[in-house]
């Protein structure tokens, strides 16, 4: 996307610069031809081609990121409030500000809030999804291997917003079972 944008920018810059070159004969009278080249060709044709390609690409990628059903999916709850997160699991006590997930398995996070709007964001694992009062939003995440990831709350939520963050710990299969059994915190 960056390369494409740079190329288009360079093209526009060159076209503008060329308009200033010395000794150039002004295109002058042939207005119909100018309209064909500039407006129909570049304005409509060029813009629409690029945008159609980009849109297709975006929808394709977006499709892949959507939650799909499957027996391996783990569901956890993420409940935001000013300025902490509570994470809930099936068959285990909730945790505060640290989300535990199994590595190598898709996880659906049910994002909710008890007060104002927050946004749930683990930059390394997925895009962000808002926590909106009265609604439950589902975000699909998956960590390829065990490790710790930084999480952020990404919707302005008042004075405590600066340091409103959490962390995510992805466990291997054995560790995950131990966590669910309540043996590790």
């Amino acid at each position: 996307m960056l390369a494409g944008a740079t190329a288009i920018f360079a093209m526009v810059a060159i076209l503008i610069t060329l308009a200033f070159r010395r000794g150039r004969r002004a295109e002058g009278k042939d207005e119909a031809r100018s309209v064909r080249v500039w407006i129909l060709g570049l304005g409509l044709g060029f813009s629409m081609t690029i945008l159609a390609a980009l849109l297709g690409f975006g929808l394709f990628i977006g499709e892949r990121l959507l939650p799909r059903g499957g027996e391996e999916v783990v569901t956890v709850g993420a409940e935001g409030r000013q300025w902490a997160w509570t994470f809930r699991y099936e068959g285990r006590a909730p945790t505060e500000d640290v989300l535990h997930i199994p590595a190598g398995r898709p996880v659906d996070v049910a994002v909710t809030t008890t007060d104002v709007i927050h946004s749930f964001w683990i930059p390394r694992l997925a895009g962000k999804l808002d926590a909106i009062p009265g609604h439950t939003n589902i975000l699909r995440i998956e960590a390829d291997s065990p490790g710790t990831f930084a999480g952020l709350s990404a919707e302005y939520s008042g004075p405590g917003y600066d340091s409103f963050s959490f962390s995510v710990v992805a466990h291997g299969p054995a560790e995950w079972d131990a966590f669910l059994a309540g043996q590790t915190e």
């Binding site: 002004a26 002058g28 309209v35 080249v37 570049l42 304005g43």
Partner: peptide, 13 residues
């Protein structure tokens, strides 16, 4: 895009 290219076309004209 149409407007931007119409403006550049005006400069060329």
């Amino acid at each position: 895009g149409v407007q931007v290219f119409a403006w550049i076309g005006t400069m060329w004209k």
